[in-house]
């Protein structure tokens, strides 16, 4: 199983992207090692439903948890249906978030943290 972190850059020293559906990169990390894969998010410019598409993308990669800043209602529903834990409210670097996740510092979010269209560029 892997965890997925929304990131503003393509490596572990990048800052966490506060948006889920429209984050710049998804970083997938194997829980045991520091092997990672960064994927550019194709849904950044989606007119609508970015969270659903991103949720589907993440769900297709055997992920047990998503670490992000915020998640909207459609993305939350998609991730929940795929039995993926969602952890919100994160900032700092991807590396720090992974370390804290491993130590079990986070609590799983019980609902969406923002409303629809939150991640749209203003």
């Amino acid at each position: 199983m892997k965890i997925c972190i929304t990131s503003q850059g393509n490596n572990l020293d990048s800052e966490i992207d506060p948006r889920f559906g429209r984050c710049k990169y998804f970083i997938f990390v194997d829980k045991d090692g520091l092997e990672f894969e960064a994927i550019q998010n194709p849904n950044v410019e989606a007119r609508g439903g970015a969270g659903i598409q991103s949720g589907q993308l993440v769900a297709g990669r055997e992920v047990e948890a998503v670490l992000t800043g915020n998640v909207g209602p459609n993305a939350f529903e998609t991730l929940k249906a795929a039995n993926i834990d969602v952890i919100t409210g994160l900032s700092g670097t991807v590396k720090e978030a992974i370390a804290r996740y491993k130590k079990g510092e986070f609590e799983v979010t019980q609902g969406p943290s923002v409303s629809s269209k939150f991640g749209l560029p203003s």
Binding site: R47, G49, Q53, G55, A59, A82
Partner: peptide
Amino acid sequence: CAYNALAVLNDRVLVF
């Protein structure tokens, strides 16, 4: 779907 109204997961399909 141009409006992303569907999500296909491993064992289910969500409709929005």
